[in-house]
Design a protein around this nucleic acid. Structure first.
Lengths: 210, 210
DNA sequence: GTCTATACTGAGATAGAC
DNA sequence: GTCTATCTCAGTATAGAC
């Protein structure tokens, strides 16, 4: 029966979204899903690979929508570079919509990010999409060195991760104004747009003049 | 003997900086430090509290320097608000210097950030300093709503954390240009300065007009 | 191919003797 | 303060039933 695999995935998703990955034991998952412990290792191999499947199931669609939106903007632009604001919109809009449709999506991703599990596990799921967006940004910001562009993309991921992660933590509710997911993302896009368009730093000169 | 406590702290710091927190077992620490397992629980209570002491020992000085630098800039400004760039400099300079003096500091913090341990453990060590800097930013950016200011501070922490965390991960070395800590921080300050100074979003109007 | 029962190894934590 | 011995619980591995 394939129902076992689905039961495990659904139960794990719910528990991890509400408690976090480390705090959710396989024994709790199998207890609530009413399956056997070894079935988890039969279907997934390990706890980490179970998580991997979970993430894959969630982010595939969002990343497809991201690339599709970027495609649209690139067609509209003809041969010209797509504006930074549009690139950011193509990246964030699909995530905002997924988050508004399904709040558990935000909680789950937030939990995993807060536990530092995304870089090690989900990065390969994001890799192709990331490459596409970096290429678009490189054309939109030709004055930036390769290194500085990569750095800024890293800043973008950091700000986004920390924000989504923060939404799953009780700490953030204390500070801030308790803004919802969509509001935070709109604020983030404004912030990142300005940061991306900032003048390049003068680091090379410092090394050359010495 | 108080030497036991110090031996545990020093050994734990070295091992955690190179392997991470989760991958470093108490049994490995006590083996290399040549102390007994129960001594760790006697002196610290738990593995988490050991980490807490470790972080405290590291960040106290940096945060003092941050506040001292902000004090200086505020005195120089008389009653006027301190410029955003100076506030950012007051925040990042002490960390850059600490990182250049002691590379293990960057590795340790990077590891912990990458594992998602900073929000849950070290936040209270940063709380007073953070409050001071938010107050300074509020004066420098009076056109921002309270909520949007908090959000931008969160973006700043996210970008910073992810960058420092990334420096401890092998993944980042693949992309990017392998820039050193100081270069990354300078790029980050330029990025954040522009982001902080971005125009406010128009979220309130949307709610009011409905 | 799917699943069950059970055992194994290593982790952090604790009680109590010294 | 320190140490031995032990406890509980985690993820994992295997043997074998259907």
């Amino acid at each position: 029966m394939m129902a076992t695999k689905e039961k495990i995935l659904d139960t794990a998703e719910r528990l991890i979204a509400s408690q976090g990955f480390a705090a959710t034991s396989l024994r709790q998952i199998i207890s609530e899903a009413q399956v056997n412990l070894a079935a988890v290792h039969y279907h997934f191999g390990s706890k980490e690979e179970l998580l991997d499947q979970l993430i894959l199931r969630k982010v595939t669609r969002v990343n497809q929508e991201r690339e599709a939106l970027l495609d649209t903007f690139e067609r509209e632009a003809g041969g010209d570079p797509v504006a930074v604001d549009k690139i950011l919109a193509a990246f964030f809009q699909p995530m905002i919509e997924a988050g508004c449709r399904n709040p558990q999506f935000v909680r789950l991703m937030g939990r995993l990010i807060a536990e530092g599990l995304i870089p090690s596990i989900a990065e390969r799921h994001f890799q192709p999409t990331t490459t596409r967006f970096i290429a678009a940004l490189r054309r939109a910001l030709p004055n930036l060195s390769e290194g500085e562009l990569f750095s800024r993309v890293q800043f973008m991921f950091g700000a986004m991760s920390h924000t989504v992660g923060g939404l799953a933590l009780p700490v953030t509710q204390i500070h801030g104004d308790g803004a919802d997911f969509q509001t935070m993302m709109l604020r983030l896009m404004a912030f990142l747009g300005a940061g991306m368009n900032a003048p390049a730093t003068k680091e090379i000169q410092m090394e050359v003049q010495q």
